[in-house]
């Protein structure tokens, strides 16, 4: 289980990374490597070149920025989990980051890597989706901010162009009420199903992990809560529009049931 050979280039700046990515269509960005390297060891992923952005200065930070909190893409899960700004102003992100993998994984894995990997089973993407986060991407022609709702396009696919680098994640302050329910077999496992609920604008936003090809919003639940439904009846709509996987961790049928239980519990916790 050794990766197939590849070229390696370390980018000193975002601009250099963009230029390197542009030079090779099969190049991949290496941040912490904790999504990419396991796939490369299985030779499922065989990039021709890795563009290591891990040393780019100033992409690891968490700071208040007006009504938002800006998180540098290279901020490690460990640092996200322990960032006081997040713990106070957007605790669900800190909490969810602390649930990813295990301590060693959190010492290497980055928030930008998790988002750019676009894994529907990842913990953070659905949290960020529920928060209506913004993703700042830099490419050859400049910088743009992509809304989370339009970011995750398909399985392991995102709105990032091949020569774009994710540089920052922007989340709103969200202290009104929240819940993060990760249902897993073992502590270190990916979620069988994950649910994040955040109070926003008098309603609630609900993100779902591992319920389809991408992280999802439980739109039906949000509507029901907006319409005054109690948690139990709102949660009954939790699997609307989902296409959960059928795998060794759970059948699609089980996940449909599970998501309703978790959403109900999440709503009860987030909406006191």
């Amino acid at each position: 289980m050794i990766p197939a050979p590849f070229d390696y280039a370390r980018a000193g700046s975002v601009e250099e990374a963009i230029s390197l990515l542009g030079s090779d269509p099969d190049a991949k960005v290496l941040a912490g490597g904790h999504s990419l390297l396991p796939a490369m060891r299985l030779r499922i992923a065989r990039p021709s070149m890795l563009v290591d952005i891990g040393r780019i200065a100033d992409l690891s930070y968490v700071r208040e920025d007006g009504d938002r909190i800006a998180i540098g893409a290279l901020t490690r899960h460990h640092d996200v989990a322990n960032a006081e700004v997040l713990q106070q102003l957007c605790p669900i992100v800190a909490h969810a980051a602390g649930q990813i993998g295990d301590p060693q994984v959190r010492h290497m894995g980055t928030i930008g890597g998790s988002v750019a990997h676009g894994d529907p089973a990842g913990d953070l993407p659905s949290v960020l989706l529920a928060l209506d986060a913004g993703f700042v991407a830099q490419g050859p022609t400049g910088t743009r901010t992509v809304a989370a709702t339009g970011f995750f396009t398909s399985l392991f696919e995102t709105a990032l162009a091949p020569d774009e680098v994710l540089t920052e994640i922007r989340v709103p302050k969200a202290t009104a009420g929240w819940s993060f329910m990760k249902f897993q077999r073992r502590a270190q496992d990916w979620a069988v199903v994950g649910v994040s609920a955040v109070r926003a604008n008098g309603g609630v936003h609900v993100g779902l992990t591992n319920m389809g090809l991408t992280p999802l919003r439980a739109v039906g639940v949000e509507e029901a809560v907006g319409g005054g439904a109690d948690p139990a009846s709102a949660a009954a709509r939790a699997d609307e529009g989902t296409a959960p996987p059928d795998d060794a961790f759970g059948s699609a049928e089980y996940r449909r049931q599970l998501v309703k239980v978790l959403v109900r519990r999440a709503l009860e916790e987030a909406l006191p």
Binding site: G33, L50, D52, H78, Q104, H107
Partner: peptide
Amino acid sequence: CDTSSCGACTVHLDGESVKSCTLLAVQ
């Protein structure tokens, strides 16, 4: 395990635990 599951390969990188089976030497 070769899949960063078991932690037998844990070392410290700049003082913090990491799994050296899921890290390139160049990193």
